[in-house]
Amino acid sequence: MKRSFGKLILASLAALVLASFAMAPFAEAAAGGGRGGGGGARAGASGGGAGARAAAGGGARQNAQVNNSRADARTNNVRSTSVNNVNVERNVNVDVEGHRGCCGGWDNDYHPVATAAAVTGAVAVTSAVVGSIVRSVPPSCVPVNYGGMVYQQCGSTWYQPQGSQYVVVNPPY
């Protein structure tokens, strides 16, 4: 089921890729912004006066937003990740099946099933398909922070902000 669903997404994704070449500049601009931020962070030497660079590292980032609508559906099928700290207990006994096995780090805001599928112009209707992308969410949605990530909960449907859009995700809990 999951596999056939993936194929379906791939097919629609292919259509989307053809249809959305205009989106490419957004992605490139975002990459440039990331490098700018990194450069600022890299420049600081130990004990040196890196205060100004700190501001540059955070502030130099462009306002461009990441657009992942062209990303392959497979990129969201994540089985495990790198870890960022050596002294957290879960790192010593990493449990890849556990609730924190995937996607828990501060660097990793990829919801396991934030699958890009299609952009619809209107507000989502009931029982939105996981992976579909909308430009806005119903006004009845309630924003909630779970695991450090912001979601919009609309009854049984959950959205995760992704740039200026929202992607329908599986309920995080």
Binding site: G34, G37, G44, V78, T81, N108
Partner: peptide
């Protein structure tokens, strides 16, 4: 003190292929 990190992490996909991502924190 002020400290910053430029992090490169990896996600492992279902078939073992890896994807890199980056993040920064100040």
């Amino acid at each position: 003190f002020w400290v910053s990190t430029e992090l490169t992490g990896e996600r492992v996909l279902a078939d073992g292929q890896k994807l890199q991502h980056t993040a920064t924190a100040n």
